[in-house]
Design a protein around this nucleic acid. Sequence first.
DNA 1: CGAATAGGTTGTTCTAGCACAAACTTCGCC
DNA 2: GGCGAAGTTTGTGCTAGAACAACCTATTCG
Lengths: 238, 238
Amino acid sequence: MSSLRSLDENLISHIPPFRKLERVDIREILDAATPKRFSAGQAIFEEHEPAERFFLLLDGHVRVIRTTAAGDQVIARHIVSGELMGIAPAIGRTTYPASAVAIDDCLVLFWPTNLWQTFVAKYDGFATETYKTVGERISEANNHILELATQQVEQRVARALLRLAIQSHRDTEEGMEIDFPLTRQNISEMTGTTLYTVSRLLSAWEKQGIVTSGRKKVVVTDLGKLKTLADLDPMGDS
Amino acid sequence: MSSLRSLDENLISHIPPFRKLERVDIREILDAATPKRFSAGQAIFEEHEPAERFFLLLDGHVRVIRTTAAGDQVIARHIVSGELMGIAPAIGRTTYPASAVAIDDCLVLFWPTNLWQTFVAKYDGFATETYKTVGERISEANNHILELATQQVEQRVARALLRLAIQSHRDTEEGMEIDFPLTRQNISEMTGTTLYTVSRLLSAWEKQGIVTSGRKKVVVTDLGKLKTLADLDPMGDS
DNA sequence: CGAATAGGTTGTTCTAGCACAAACTTCGCC
DNA sequence: GGCGAAGTTTGTGCTAGAACAACCTATTCG
């Protein structure tokens, strides 16, 4: 039984892995999908859980998190609408490698994992496009490693903010506002530092007019300066 | 023209991506392969270079390296015999994401990138197995991020050594010797620290009977103790 | 509306580990 | 067989940033 009225084809027809497909194919894919809403804070899937489904985020923002034995959390990435997630089957895993949590209210579509093979086999371009996604995520991960291994905290935080601002912002009079709730703690979990250090950095940047920030909110007011901080800052501004 | 006598099927028949294949298929694959030797220190491929070939390491050890704009190097992983490398095509890349350098004398087989599609389409199990490899590398990368973000240098170095010792060792009277040349500098590039700190750690561990080390050589003499250091050491041994 | 809670700031202290320097050892090679 | 290069060790600062503490300020919710 379809949980809602039949889903609109335009929902996914423009999204990379589906872009090249025929209307009929899209129809088929949508008919096999289950839509589901998650409210802010809800877990979409958990690390180590058997990967029984793969997901497409249609609306909202999702945080992908890993937790160490010692209890520290690390934010691996943020998923924005139009992205696939939980695509463990693509990489021969039977278990999710991380947890996904809805940051704000989210709308997702999901399919049972066993359909993955079918999609890959049946829909031309789907495999190529999703493997490209996988490739991008590997690159991201490797860049993250490079950063953690070679850069100072300030640069790492600047880069993290820059990426978020570019990936998912809303334009306001003040500047580019990161369009989902983001705490100092969150930023520290993305960059391998502490919330205190992030707070100090943001305060300093606010004085220099690079950002404006509030409770769970960050606005980049001077993208250029932030970029300078992110690219190996030639010299520390006084 | 085949560069050498025809290659022996046993060379690759036991290697995961090829294991499930028929003799005929293996024959075909080998006939399409070019064997090549690299001597210690030689580059096999370079970051950013167009990915015109993908490789299988038959013998020797390879280091996968990334370099930052500032000139710092990071060792992403070590490849041991039987592993594929330069599999950029698998993840929709047209360019190598890192450089590969022969650590000791190496024997590799390579194929032109355009054959990748053929392999995936034609040889059953090849796709699945290689995507599993990709998956493992993603996991590795993510673990590396977790470590860099949350662990102390001592633990990271212990883990790096542990991994190497398990992945590629030779048993000696002293213990498990990492079976390729490895300097303090190399270890520091794997763990995001300095060669000085690594040297001090190894010296300390040598006194505690955990390792023995020499020029470009590390032998793990007490695997148990090293594991303790690697898993969040409950308390620092005096 | 008022208390509880989540999030943020800022001061102070302290240390892991980086930076630099200098000397030593091992190895390969002319 | 001795010189030079590459690799290693160890000492001495020194500082980025973690840890902890205390306090402040929005939000939320009964």
